[in-house]
Computed example of a mutant assay.
Amino acid sequence: MQYSGLHNYCKSKKGCQHEFKTEWGVDRYMLSGKMFAMIGGDKAGKPIITLKGSPMENLALRENFSDIIPGYYMNKEHWNSIYLEGHVPDDLIKKMIDASYHLVFSGLSKKLQKEIETSS
């Protein structure tokens, strides 16, 4: 999947806040200050997206796709990184973005959830 498509897809999520973290060279996508996606590169500069997921689903994805690895510089149980030049289908990446967003959203207070849902 192309970077611009990922960027636009992440930014389209309701309540998404985007920042470029210069010192890390990554784009971060957050919901109420909690990150749900990060696009950057590994130590060799290969482009990756890092997403939150449930531990069981994360393991299953890693077993089925060699281009999905434990979260790069993240908690290896709760985060996966996907090589963007690899062989992970675009629709699966979008589903993983959706799941990551919903995990973060569901961890917010009901008040914050309602504010995000009713924002335009």
Rank of each mutant, 00 (worst) to 15 (best):
M1L: 06
Q2Y: 07
Q2A: 08
Y3W: 11
S4G: 06
L6I: 08
H7E: 08
H7R: 09
H7P: 05
N8L: 15
N8M: 09
Y9A: 08
Y9D: 10
Y9S: 11
C10D: 02
K11R: 14
K11Y: 05
K11V: 06
S12A: 15
S12D: 12
S12T: 14
S12G: 13
K14G: 08
G15N: 00
G15S: 00
C16Y: 04
C16F: 04
C16K: 02
Q17T: 13
H18L: 10
E19N: 07
K21H: 14
V26C: 06
D27A: 00
D27C: 02
R28F: 01
R28I: 02
Y29N: 01
M30C: 03
M30Y: 02
L31K: 01
G33I: 01
G33C: 01
M35Y: 03
M35R: 02
F36H: 00
A37M: 04
A37V: 04
A37W: 05
I39P: 06
G40R: 14
K43N: 12
A44P: 08
G45M: 06
P47I: 11
I49E: 02
I49Y: 01
T50V: 12
G53W: 02
G53K: 05
S54Q: 13
P55H: 04
P55K: 04
M56K: 14
E57Y: 01
E57W: 00
E57H: 01
N58P: 12
A60Q: 15
L61D: 02
E63Q: 15
E63A: 15
E63W: 12
E63H: 11
E63M: 13
S66P: 10
D67S: 04
D67N: 05
D67A: 03
I69F: 09
G71H: 09
G71Y: 08
Y72D: 07
Y72V: 08
Y72P: 11
Y72W: 14
Y73C: 08
Y73E: 11
H78E: 09
I82C: 07
Y83K: 14
Y83R: 13
L84A: 10
E85S: 11
E85W: 10
H87G: 08
V88Q: 01
D90N: 12
D91T: 07
L92Y: 05
L92I: 06
L92R: 04
I93E: 08
K94W: 06
K94S: 09
K95M: 04
K95S: 06
M96P: 02
I97P: 05
D98P: 03
A99P: 00
A99M: 03
A99L: 05
S100E: 02
Y101I: 01
H102M: 12
L103N: 00
F105W: 03
S106R: 10
L108H: 05
L108M: 04
S109V: 00
K110D: 00
K111L: 07
K111I: 09
K111Q: 12
Q113K: 01
Q113A: 03
E115Y: 01
I116A: 07
E117S: 06
T118H: 12
S119D: 14
S119C: 11
S119H: 13
S120A: 11
S120E: 08
